[in-house]
Design a protein around this nucleic acid. Structure first.
Lengths: 285, 285
DNA sequence: ACAATAATGTAGTTTAACTACAAATTATAT
DNA sequence: ATATAATTTGTAGTTAAACTACATTATTGT
């Protein structure tokens, strides 16, 4: 857990002044890093000791260690980010650059996670009687991965990466179905066509794709993944990672929700048993 | 580029005392973070201003900004890591936890990247006349992904996720072939069997799997991915991400190497042309 | 409404980061 | 080889930021 999510979780337990501090830091983490306690406290409108007390509440030593923790959970500043791969890079350097870019992409995705769309997507998938994943090329693999993950959750689920096949499948959908279209660019006409077909048949469509894309505009629910096109080398793995992370989130969220449902029915039946038992006791008295 | 790699690259230009500082920090980055300038300079055996000068040489403002940069490039301390997903987690929280765990896993992989095995793997794949990727279940998808990536690099390449198929394929291999076996646990007997068959036929085998596993002990070259079994929820995506990053690294490293070769032959032929031209000029004089 | 407790701020203290300058080392030129 | 210039390193002093003790103000319960 990063320091920022830790702040979020302790927010409700904080006093008025301290939660002002928390709110400011959550909104301006980067600025916080470069300010010293005097500037920061003035900016927020509290006293210096309040800031220190806030740091202590989080379990840290003081403002210094807080700033260090904050720096650790913050992504690298953009200037030192992502130099493209050159011909004199060693394999080690190539690997490091790729992993750095993947991490940056995941952090970006993490930031954009907090949207009502996520909840809507989960709800739609929970309700769906049948789920189909469509994706072409690299995203086809992501679709297959999703299929494997959703497979165990009880709902019938398939993944298609062939344009012709998912087009045909889309025509056979019914209102109880959900379609998840995965695409890096969101501009594949084949995929778009299948999504439109699915919508015509009343299926709920979820797009995991670039925010500014035809696919995103078309689908019912959009989970945006915006990968800056900084490099031909990095782009594929960046979108792949973010897509996988998002689908994993959906799968686990649904698994958790289903388990809760089961628990609930189990608890209900158990409580019914208990009631019945009690009833028979009453009768025998 | 992280601050640590920046230190590495500036190391040759540093004076004696400053390179002592650099060497210490590269070896003990974590300790450095918690020390203040006095402690650090005493520990290294230089004066405080020397440390400050070192920070300035790196282009930073002073020791404070240096510590901040260092913190940013250092992975989170393990204690604040990864609480498992619980039933009362919101979808947002689930997503954040999943992404955090994926990032942690990638950082771990990044650390273990620097090994002669990586170079060996690239060399073997560069030499190979034919490459086969084997992986089962979740790793099967990674194998397919690798197949797509390596596809454009010129070498014939296939991916098999069916145990029976890759077993048959392994019997048909020749010494010029390379096999990349991808497995989270490294304990699949089917996969192990196919790798052994491939080795018997003289193929070079590369394993992307847990360091402590039968598969790792068997294969010619091992690219280890050690995912702590901290959670059933996180484990799959962690290994998936690291596997993808490693295979991407291999693919791009090979692409870069091949381009260099092409450049070289191109440059050679161009220089030959130039020579021929010059020769004819000499003749005509 | 008043007391008690918690929360916040003010003023002072300590500590760590930084600066100016001096000493020592190294390099270079005669 | 030696002297001088330039660079490097360290010492001592200064500044500024982080932290502490205590006073004041809000908040809660009786």
């Amino acid at each position: 857990m990063t320091i920022l999510s830790q702040i979020e979780s302790t927010l409700p337990n904080l006093s008025k002044a301290e939660s002002k501090v928390a709110a400011y830091i959550l909104e301006h983490p980067k600025q916080t890093m470069s300010r010293h306690i005097g500037e920061l406290s003035k900016e927020i409108g509290v006293s210096e000791p309040t800031v220190i007390r806030f740091c202590r509440t989080l379990g840290l030593d003081g403002y210094k260690s807080f700033k260090l923790s904050l720096a650790q959970s913050l992504p690298q500043t953009s200037e030192q980010l992502l130099v493209d791969i050159t011909h004199n890079d060693s394999p080690l350097k190539i690997g490091q650059k790729i992993i750095d870019s993947a991490i940056a992409s995941l952090q970006e995705t993490r930031k954009n996670l907090d949207s009502p769309q996520l909840g809507k997507a989960i709800e739609a998938l929970l309700r769906a009687e049948r789920i189909e994943f469509y994706g072409q090329g690299g995203s086809g693999i992501v679709a297959s991965d999703a299929q494997q993950k959703f497979f165990r959750l009880g709902t019938p689920v398939v993944a298609y990466s062939d344009p012709y096949i998912h087009c045909v499948s889309a025509t056979l959908l019914t209102p109880g179905c959900a379609v998840v279209a995965v695409s890096h660019s969101g501009s594949s006409t084949d995929l778009l066509h299948s999504v439109k077909l699915a919508m015509e048949n009343g299926a709920t469509t979820i797009a995991i794709t670039a925010r500014q894309s035809v696919l995103a505009e078309t689908a019912d629910i959009v989970l945006p993944i915006d990968v800056q096109e900084d490099s031909t080398h990095y782009a594929p793995i960046k979108s792949r990672m973010s897509q996988l992370a998002l689908l994993d989130t959906l799968a686990i969220a649904i698994a958790v929700a289903r388990e809760d449902e089961q628990d609930l029915t189990e608890r209900l039946s158990r409580s019914n048993d208990a009631l019945a038992h009690k009833h028979s006791q009453n009768l025998s008295q």
